[in-house]
Amino acid sequence: MIAHTIFFYFFSFIAIFSALMVITSRSTINSVFFLILDFISIGCLFIMVGAEFLGMILLIVYVGAVAVLFLFVVMMLNVAQQKQSWFIGKKSTHIPSGLIVGVLIFLELLVVIGGWKYKEGIASSSSIIINKDISNTHQLGNVMYTDYILYFQLSGIILLLSMIGAIVLTYRKRENLKRQNYFTQISREKSSSIEIKKVEFDKGVKIDD
């Protein structure tokens, strides 16, 4: 139990520390790396509470794919070289608008969380019976593909929609572009690509017409 507590505080300390560093560190690239560290330590916390499937999926999806794209964007835009001049410049218009938005969100959160009440008997109203004999992943599958299949499919469709949306937004047809066709490249024969021409003296040949 002691080891468990030590590990819990270790991971949560790293999680909170790196979450703070994400918003306070000066260079954007460091922010992204701290974000990755945050994901990893949160994943470890998930595993510690026994949700090993969620923890692993968090690592695979967020750290393995999403954060890589984050890093890509940050590296390509070269924002790392830019210093954050928002708080230094005299005519900064960001601070007032940011403050207004921040205060509004804070108030909204206060109102929502302040008025939060759990429905009575919510713990017992859950219809899922947890079988302690089978593993967490197994149990998750049992619930997800039976009771919640509609929500599962819906979230899949939302993901598909966003994928199609991203493709539609970024796709543009460019004219006059030389494309490589693998089949024609591979299936090229000597007879169709080489032609021997007799060159008469002082005349030359006309090619490529």
Partner: peptide, 16 residues
């Protein structure tokens, strides 16, 4: 329990 997922996660981290 989730050995294969662990392997997959680690190999997806190695790009870093």
């Amino acid at each position: 329990n989730v050995g294969i997922l662990y392997l997959f996660a680690i190999s997806s981290l190695s790009v870093y």
